[in-house]
Nucleic acid binder design. Structure first.
Lengths: 343, 343
DNA sequence: GATGGTTGTGCACACGGTCGCGCGGGGTTC
DNA sequence: GAACCCCGCGCGACCGTGTGCACAACCATC
């Protein structure tokens, strides 16, 4: 077409012409700038400046096969996704590292067979240099699909099953955290310590329940199964679980709740029933999200370094998984108790 | 490992060969599939299936100049960004619309001259089809830069100054919302209604203050300037502002707080000083984020349709700004009061 | 059976970079 | 002063896809 439109984006060629050099030289200046005289470089730089040139990523990607883009895939329905500050913190951590490295962040959510298929195809299409997978459930086929197509992947939290390959993985010590939380409730003199678990098709949910059981066993307590109810990490799920817990008649005087969001829901239900926190029922959460700091009472909880988890994931992907400097690496982050007023 | 070095991504050419047709035909089948016989199309489709072919986005972008990717740029420091559930809701709305349209979401944060320059260059580099700008401050040079380079842009919230062009814009009626909140406090019998404002280098901050002033004027109240303190939309900012408000001695018995996050901070400070909410000091927030629902007491606030705002932004960008079916369009969303317990 | 119209397909160029190859010229060494 | 090096740079072949254009094949029409 004719150059009618006027405002044409400048190309390498135009920069080269203006600077009085060849395309290749301009390219060299922009990238590694290996072998080029200071004088020429200067000329090229001013030409770039004057034209307001910026390289066309598509053209570059076509030949280098690098996109300088990382995908963050969250396996949740969109409306649940951002309801939990946990994800916000992950994004924050990931974002900060990618920013240092001059990489872009692509945000994707997917839940269910169909969407996972779509996302899998997309990611396999060399649109991104690698992918970060978060919040995987048991039946998520994404892991296998990506492994097959050779896309570098880092998992946040281990997949549910050992069968799913996760050579690169950043996780927190869920078992230990849950153990500490439960132990805290036991040590503060509570007789009937219940738990509201996370979804049992996620590793984090399973492990936090295991920690609870281990801690109870270590203290020589039998577990009344009426005191174990399942939630889904959401506020409403927590509320529902707490209601069921009370209705079952196990008469808990303390609850280890496997996420802060659920704890928020639990507190609401307790208050509705006229029960005081922590006097009638003590509560310990998990995650230490912003929510817990500002509820009433402020939540005693297990701090997990969520932002750091995002950072480590990004680092592992960019520094190890993509360059393939190792075949596998696992980062395990520790938790610690944050004692506030709820338990 | 680099096993199967032959594991080459299939190209159009390979598909064409397998289907016994020319490259062009395959391309036609994949895209508009305008003029191609059913028999040929079938053959091509099975060839695609068998090879697991997926088009190379970079090559396609290079010639079509379309990336099928939209950028969401949040003009805040990264650590403040996701601390506010407001942004989470925006992302949720944007994401849902983009998903329907088969578009990808690129997430970017930028604060300050240098970062804005970088982001501006990046976005001008035809890496995305358009951009969504959120949380602009007065001095943000991004708007002008992008307008100049011809990148389609939709603003979330009007820019601070009329001088900054924002042909496509989705905003909420801040003035009306603030008016309603203030009026509510006046109508419930409060004598000395103060306000904690948002940052005054942002339009939302300015307008919510204006709504407060208008409402006070309409009720015939003089404004004691000791009752007007500035916050920054954050929890800590709200806490600091509330402390200053109390220290100034204006003796407020109610406060319109220009964001829920600040209200959370304000509640904390009031409690620390032994003041009851709402009995000693009533509070009305703004935003109606998840936080406000679970604080104690639950926050009376001005609901703004944040998710919908994200959706409208995405729609406006994709349906109007990018195809340029109109030169400008402004969407104004209404707020409504949500009366809970804090005021 | 020749002709015209229609439909479907192959061909080749363009998109804007990267990178290896090869060359010219200035500095060094005998 | 000539031979040699090597640094700095231009040149052109790709990367994989979209698309206008020419053309072949087919059917209908006279």
């Amino acid at each position: 077409m004719a150059k009618s439109g006027g405002r044409q984006r400048p190309t390498l060629e135009m920069v080269a012409e203006r600077a009085g050099v060849g395309r290749g030289t301009v390219s060299r200046v922009i990238n590694g700038s290996s072998q080029v005289s200071p004088r020429t470089r200067e000329a090229v730089h001013t030409a770039i400046e004057e034209l307001g040139y910026s390289p066309n990523q598509a053209a570059r990607t076509l030949v280098t096969r690098r996109t300088d883009t990382i995908a963050l895939v969250v396996s949740e329905a969109r409306d649940r996704l951002f309801a939990d500050p946990f994800f916000a913190d992950i994004i924050r951590g990931v974002s900060s590292v990618l920013h240092e490295r001059d990489l872009q962040l692509m945000l994707t959510t997917a839940r269910g067979e169909a969407e996972h298929k779509r996302v899998g195809e997309y990611l396999s299409g060399s649109h991104v240099d690698g992918a970060l997978l978060v919040s995987l459930h048991r039946d998520d086929p994404l892991t296998a699909r990506l492994a097959e197509s050779g896309v570098p992947v880092v998992h946040g939290g281990r997949p549910y099953s050992e069968a799913q390959p996760a050579p690169f993985c950043v996780d927190i010590d869920n078992v230990n955290g849950a153990r500490a939380a439960t132990a805290h409730l036991l040590e503060t003199g509570h007789r009937r310590v219940a738990t509201i678990t996370g979804p049992q098709d996620m590793n984090a949910g399973v492990e936090r329940l295991r920690g609870y059981r281990e801690s109870m066993a270590a203290a020589g307590r039998e577990i009344d199964e009426r005191l174990v109810v399942q939630g889904d990490f959401s506020v409403e799920g927590g509320a529902g679980a707490m209601a069921r817990l009370l209705d079952r008649g196990g008469e808990p005087d303390a609850v280890f709740v496997a996420s802060d969001m659920m704890a928020v829901g639990a507190v609401r239900v307790l208050r509705e029933r006229g029960l005081a926190v922590p006097d009638d029922v003590a509560l310990v959460g998990f995650d230490d999200t912003m929510m817990g700091r500002h509820t009433d009472p402020p939540l005693t909880t297990v701090h997990q370094p969520t932002v750091q988890m995002g950072q480590e994931m990004a680092r592992l992907l960019v520094d190890v998984a993509i360059p393939r400097t190792a075949d596998s690496e696992m980062v395990l982050l520790q938790t610690h108790m944050v004692v506030r007023d709820s338990g």
